[in-house]
Amino acid sequence: MMRIDRSKLRRSIICWLVLLPLVVVVLFPFAVMFLTAVKPSEEVFVYPARWLPTTYRWANFTDMWEATKFGVALKNSLYVSISSTILAIAVSIPAAYAMARFPFQGKGLYRQFLLVTQMLSPILLVIGLFRLAAMIHWGEGNLVDKHISVIVAYGAFNIAFAVWMMSSYFATIPKDLEESAWLEGCGRARAVWKVFLPLAVPAMTVTAIFTFINAWNEFAVVYTLIRSDANKTLTVQITDLVAGRYTVEWHQVMAATLLATLPVSVLFAWLQRYLVKGLALGAVK
């Protein structure tokens, strides 16, 4: 049954050809990362420079794993990113629903306020955040060096995007679907749960990807709020390998960066299918 659809094949070739320049530019830094990561350290700076290493030194990865405490950092990154994503989505869904379905006073104001939360240059914001964290008592000390402070901050900073993205999308979900559910005797809340939310999955997926990535890659906040090695995330550990050092072990840095992108890439590969056109269509009939 492996019949190749010829028009699809032609379309595929055209699509890939058009995408080619972008694909090359995108993959270029990854090639740089990979080939540097597997080079023996003495080959990183050779002149004339070469793309390929003479021998592939896979041990760079294990060395790096030790040097960056990769395992712990990976766990922390996952924990912080997933938690903050859940937080952001959880508070944003009701808000987005309100924005999409109700006309109400202060809607524009609320939207503006959310935008303002995005507008401050994060570099200066962190000092305020740090003071805030230092002021709040938590357990035996304050919120400095606690994951919860980072999670709440990330959650808050992602609300603007989450609300906006989801409300734009929610607005495209036909109202009559819910309304017909009301007619069938569903309460409004139940109708939202049964009819509306399943249709909103693609929007939530996109939003979740965005929030997760933001948290995964964020540096300034986590660098300021988190102090101990046991609590540091991947971005901090990796950037620590580079910033302001007299000598940089480039092969380790590249190995670490490459490995840090893996979980996210897998996430992309898995989630992109939820963006497929027509997911909403099935329900619309």
């Binding site: 962190v126 000092i127 740090f130 003071r131 230092a134 660098y223 300021t224 102090r227 910033a243 302001g244």
Partner: peptide, 20 residues
């Protein structure tokens, strides 16, 4: 606590202003 030179001043600033 080991801090990179690049961000040492920034870290001291945050710490001092946060009283920590």
């Amino acid at each position: 606590e080991v801090v990179n030179w690049d961000t040492l001043l920034q870290k001291l600033q945050t710490d001092i202003s946060g009283g920590t």
